[in-house]
Write a protein that binds this DNA or RNA. Structure first.
Lengths: 189, 189
DNA sequence: ACCTGAACACCGTTCAAGT
DNA sequence: ACCTGAACACCGTTCAAGT
């Protein structure tokens, strides 16, 4: 990884693009016009492509903070005594932000497939899956959650709830209800 | 509804467009190029728009047979003695076809929202929801399924499983596993 | 080293002209 | 009554020219 500092104008454009993209994705979903983002950020379209060769690279940059937060949260929760509650809390936090920008949950599901392995979002999805895997395994060891559940299946299903919640009047409430159902299915016996 | 027979060439174009669209949607998902569909069907793009003013009108025409089949299947299953098994069977059948064309499950979730109420797919989604509602209510009356489950929530979640399964190596297997989990959550006590 | 914006390809959608 | 395809707008992506 090249860590030499960017030229000042490059850095400024980079930052501006991320902030503008965040707003655009929030407004129009993950499919927002890249041309429009470049225009609104006041840069040429080539500059956008130089910094972010694909739409997903840009989306990844926008989501980075949230993803890092989720990973840190998982680490904190691993210290909790109640493994089942820790898993439940993390999934609720995960879904609390999943409805925005619209389309994110779909992209994460896609990013879990093999073809995305060496993209930024693919790596992010893998990291999320690992974090969830640790919480899940602990709950399974504690005998609270069925042993046959696979972290990838669970992450996919959690994101699926995210997809379904996006078009709902109250995404948070829907996600919580569905997660409660799912959790009853996950429990042993 | 105008039921006067179409002119022979119009009818032929109409049929050709549906068959071509079915192939295109299967190959490239529900976002397949409409222009390309018109070309492959051998008609001008205006003709496509005359018959199907929106992408969803065309998709609805393509899905019509499958949807009708699902509604009929629900009726048959209502005659079964075991209400819980009937519900489970219908959901499995529903998901068996959900992974193709890619994007269908997402569209159905969208079609359930209020804005789609007076579109063809909106009406279809409502009919599917009603059919599921009847199976669900019967299973609830029988005491097999939790009373607080809402058919709309359940249909959304079922389609969510469909979305998640699309990008999976074996969609059918994934859907069955997730449905089994979900079902455990749906059961009483 | 980085930026700009014109250029190209592609797609959705409309509509004047045709049969 | 229906069809065609040119025309327009919009978007993604590349790259030659500029600083």
């Amino acid at each position: 990884m090249d860590t030499r500092p960017m030229r000042a104008d490059a850095r400024r454009n980079y930052e501006r693009l991320i902030t503008t993209a965040r707003t655009a994705f929030m407004e129009h979903g993950t499919g927002a016009s890249l041309d429009d983002i470049a225009k609104r950020a006041g840069v040429g379209s080539g500059t956008l492509y130089r910094h972010f060769p694909t739409r997903d690279a840009l989306l990844h940059a926008v989501l980075r903070e949230r993803i890092d937060g989720l990973l840190a949260h998982a680490d904190e929760l691993t210290a909790r005594p109640d493994a089942e509650e820790a898993l439940g809390r993390w999934l609720r936090t995960y879904l609390a932000g999943a409805a925005t920008p619209r389309g994110t949950s779909t992209v994460i599901i896609e990013a879990m497939s093999a073809e995305w392995a060496d993209t930024g979002l693919g790596a992010a999805a893998a990291a999320i899956c690992d974090a969830l895997g640790r919480l899940l395994e602990r709950a399974q060891r504690a005998g609270a959650i069925r042993a046959e559940i696979d972290p990838r299946d669970l992450l996919r299903l959690t994101n699926a709830i995210g997809v379904a919640s996006e078009r709902t009047p109250d995404p948070g409430a829907y996600a919580d209800r569905m997660l409660a159902l799912l959790f009853d299915g996950l429990r042993t016996g």
